[in-house]
Simulated assay, not measured.
Amino acid sequence: MLNDKAASVGGGPRFPAAASAHDLQHFAVEGPGNPALIVPKKGFKPYPSELQPVGPEKVKKIYQEVRSDTIVQLTDGVNYPGWSLDGKIPASVIRMRVGDTMEYSLKNLAEQGHSIDFHAANAPWDKAFHTIEPGKEFAFTWKAKHPGVFMYHCVTPLAVQHVANGMYGMSIIEPEEPLPPAREFSLVQSEFYFKNNEIDYDGIAAGNSPDYVVFNGTANQYQDYPLVAKAGELVRFYFLNVGPNMWSGFHMIGGVFDKVYLEGNPRNVTYGHQVVSVAPSGGVICEVTLDEPGLYPLVTHCFAHASKGAVGILKIV
């Protein structure tokens, strides 16, 4: 298995041979001559995007483990040796309400220091977000004060490398007054960089163009496995751009977002968006109701990045 120590020297490790479906959380493959085509394999399971309601408990107890052996197969034969916060990339969506308390614990099972940074938390960086040495465990408690769609991630230097390697997730803080019932989906846009079959640490740090830009860890996975909602049903997207470097222009082909909550905060509501600009680490909620059955692609309107995998489909039935 690859480890963090190997990844930190000599330009990075080479990609391992293709993993089996049993070893992978999710994967996709390119079709011959068509990098935007998904050809499903037996046992394929797309990253789960449909959200479940937030639980009723006022104290959320979250335990995660840093791992350095999480393999993401971006396309057939391209296996990225990622680092993760809970064994998958992106990490699990964490959902709370304003006023809830999180009791968070992180154990570092990797071979170098890692940390955690919750953008939703008001907590001193030197006490809550410091680096945890290998084999150690750290816990802290914080209370959710602001509604929104927030990033959480490893912030150990160089943070850009830790984020690019997969150490990120979405946290949703629900407002005190709940939003109307809807079909809800989460989408995390992220970038992967490699050069000559190796992790391109220099390219990550320099802000070079990424090799893959994806939703929920895998290129194009929601084309053959679209997100499904009913005609006339309110659909709500929780969208997060973790970067680490590129902006996103979140767009639905064939539809206009009826309402957009900037940063996921209902107080920041605007109407009738053709595209939503989302900065690295920025979050947003987009709502739409579509009356006509059919296919509505979801893309970043930075089309150079959409062509690298940031494409999905909402299927209205």
Rank of each mutant, 00 (worst) to 15 (best):
residue 193 Y to T: 09
residue 193 Y to I: 11
residue 195 K to T: 11
residue 196 N to L: 10
residue 197 N to S: 11
residue 197 N to L: 12
residue 197 N to E: 13
residue 198 E to P: 02
residue 200 D to M: 10
residue 201 Y to H: 15
residue 202 D to Y: 05
residue 203 G to Y: 12
residue 204 I to T: 10
residue 205 A to S: 14
residue 207 G to Q: 11
residue 209 S to Y: 12
residue 209 S to V: 13
residue 211 D to C: 01
residue 212 Y to K: 14
residue 212 Y to M: 09
residue 212 Y to S: 02
residue 214 V to N: 08
residue 214 V to G: 07
residue 215 F to I: 00
residue 216 N to S: 05
residue 217 G to I: 07
residue 217 G to D: 00
residue 217 G to F: 05
residue 220 N to P: 00
residue 221 Q to G: 00
residue 223 Q to S: 08
residue 223 Q to C: 07
residue 225 Y to K: 12
residue 225 Y to S: 14
residue 225 Y to R: 08
residue 225 Y to V: 07
residue 226 P to D: 04
residue 227 L to Q: 08
residue 229 A to K: 10
residue 230 K to T: 07
residue 230 K to W: 04
residue 230 K to Y: 11
residue 231 A to Q: 11
residue 234 L to I: 12
residue 236 R to P: 05
residue 236 R to Q: 07
residue 237 F to L: 08
residue 239 F to G: 12
residue 239 F to V: 15
residue 241 N to E: 02
residue 241 N to K: 04
residue 246 M to G: 05
residue 250 F to G: 03
residue 251 H to E: 11
residue 252 M to V: 12
residue 252 M to T: 01
residue 252 M to P: 04
residue 253 I to S: 04
residue 253 I to M: 08
residue 253 I to V: 15
residue 254 G to H: 04
residue 256 V to E: 14
residue 257 F to V: 02
residue 258 D to K: 15
residue 263 E to H: 09
residue 264 G to R: 02
residue 266 P to E: 02
residue 267 R to E: 15
residue 268 N to V: 01
residue 268 N to I: 03
residue 269 V to E: 13
residue 269 V to K: 02
residue 271 Y to M: 03
residue 272 G to R: 05
residue 272 G to D: 08
residue 272 G to W: 00
residue 275 V to D: 12
residue 277 S to I: 13
residue 279 A to E: 12
residue 280 P to V: 08
residue 281 S to M: 13
residue 281 S to I: 02
residue 281 S to F: 08
residue 282 G to T: 10
residue 282 G to E: 13
